[in-house]
């Protein structure tokens, strides 16, 4: 009995952690900054690619993962300085610009790194639970997903930097009047969101691999999660990820992966029909 409960819990938590990881960066860039970032999937891809490259060059995996996130953060800052900063508040224009960025990134990666799939092995082995065994790396992934979300929440809620970011996003003109360098805050926040996406790619790469067009696998799910989450980007992402992950994990385990995905999309449609402003609508004062 214990092992059945454990395997369900594992399936569901694993699925939730994937939803959390792929939407964290978007929760910052789209949820907080209101930039419709169609290059989000490509930021994930860059993280996966850089992690595989670094690990392939002999850097230990657990150093490659944060390094890859950092590099993607820098890529995000460059993109923000060159393009995005001129477009804040112009929703449709950012949409086109970030889409252009996504095409550019896919093209550049295909040209310079080649179109093939890349990956890096991990050798953490597995632990056994009666009939089942579970990969240790995937357990670590679950922990990392929740830890990242918790850390982000604490930074946003408890630190001065978080307060400044929230102030700026809420009312940039007022924040500027109070002496905050909002231009710099926007730049760093965008870079931070990109870094989170890169970190996600790097965390996923030992299990899922990296290829130039992999962004497309994740972008729709990430947007659905953040939009269903509603006005509070982090609480909403957690709530929506938990809901979708629970459905996906349970249905995919009980039936097939296809039905799992279908049921998630079905619930997302229902949710947006009846709660068009997301599950955290009406909650105030949090993130």
């Amino acid at each position: 009995m214990f092992e059945v409960v454990a395997i369900y819990a594992y399936q569901i938590l694993f699925s939730i952690s994937i939803f959390i990881l792929i939407s964290l960066g978007l929760a910052v860039i789209f949820g907080m900054m209101k930039v419709i970032n169609l290059a989000h999937g490509e930021f994930i891809m860059l993280g996966a690619l850089f992690c595989a490259q670094l690990a392939g060059a002999g850097v230990p995996l657990f150093l490659s993962i944060p390094l890859a996130g950092l590099i993607v953060g820098l890529v995000g800052i460059v993109g923000e300085r060159l393009v995005i900063r001129y477009l804040y508040g112009r929703v449709l224009d950012t949409l086109l610009a970030t889409w252009g960025m996504s095409l550019l990134i896919v093209g550049a990666v295909t040209t310079f790194f080649g179109p093939q799939t890349a990956s890096t092995p991990q050798d953490l082995g597995n632990i056994s639970l009666g009939t089942f065994s579970i990969s240790v790396y995937s357990l670590l992934m679950i922990l990392l997903a929740f830890a990242l979300l918790a850390a982000l929440y604490l930074v946003w809620r408890m630190t001065r930097a978080g307060l400044i970011v929230r102030t700026t996003m809420q009312n940039a003109a007022m924040a500027q009047a109070l002496g905050i360098d909002t231009d710099r805050v926007f730049m760093l926040t965008f870079g931070f969101g990109a870094a989170l996406a890169g970190l996600t790619g790097a965390i996923l790469v030992p299990l899922f691999g990296a290829s130039p067009t992999m962004g497309a696998f994740y972008i729709a799910k990430a947007f659905v999660t953040v939009i269903a989450g509603g006005p509070l980007p982090l609480t909403g992402t957690l709530a929506a990820s938990s809901l979708f992950g629970m459905i996906d994990g349970a249905v995919a385990y009980l039936t097939t992966s296809v039905l799992g995905e279908i049921s998630v999309l079905f619930v997302a449609i229902l949710l947006l029909r009846f709660l068009p402003k997301g599950v955290t609508r009406g909650l105030k004062g949090r993130v």
């Binding site: 209101k34 419709i36 804040y88 508040g89 929703v91 449709l92 949409l95 996003m169 809420q170 009312n171 940039a172 003109a173 500027q176 909002t182 231009d183 926007f186 939009i227 509603g230 006005p231 947006l272 068009p276 402003k277 997301g278």
Partner: peptide, 16 residues
């Protein structure tokens, strides 16, 4: 650099 507030336009954004 002003921002439209988050409450408005969720549905619009989704459509976008």
């Amino acid at each position: 650099m002003s921002f439209t507030h988050g409450q408005e336009g969720r549905g619009g954004m989704l459509r976008c």
